[in-house]
Amino acid sequence: MNIFRLAGDMTHLASVLVLLLKIHTIKSCAGVSLRTQELYAIVFATRYLDIFTSFVSVYNTFMKLVFLGSSFSIVWYMRYHKAVHRTYDREQDTFRHWFLVLPCLVLALLIHEKFTFLEVLWTFSLYLEAVAILPQLVLLQRTRNIDNLTGQYIFLLGGYRGLYILNWIYRYFTEPHFVHWITWIAGLVQTLLYADFFYYYFLRFIGGRGVE
């Protein structure tokens, strides 16, 4: 574990806590894409299949349970909790996210490190996570102005994988044979998709306005 990866995990944890805070306390999911949340639930479900078979550390298992629990409970809140569901912007959140799942699955069947059930699903989760934010970014364009909590959520979610890239660079130079092209390229694509958002997000900080 290095400082970049720890910072990345804490940033990722902060993003789900911010979203849970928003949904649980003010009972609102305005500006949040349910489709992105559904994709993230699939990402964690397919990435952490080994949670019971391979033990890495208490920290690792704990964080996996947190991410699994939070992603599924956010989907539950947005779908079934009356007060929260009422604030869900169904008309605007229309990105055909199921069209992202199949290509990622096909790509994982073609490009992977090992052709085993767990490895292919794990690779699928990497590809899916890279594009999972798309419905949220499209919703963001449509709803124009968003509240600070949603803005923070997206910023933290985008930042965590950027910190992971620093972690991969660090591990590449400090650990022999640490090469994982698939993870690196998927992580880079994922982070680049936020470039546009980061630009407007920092403008907001400079300008002190809401995220236009």
Binding site: V56, N60, K64, F67, W122
Partner: peptide, 10 residues
């Protein structure tokens, strides 16, 4: 067959 390193990242 070389043991693939366990996935220690989240």
């Amino acid at each position: 067959e070389e043991e693939t390193p366990t996935k220690d990242e989240l």
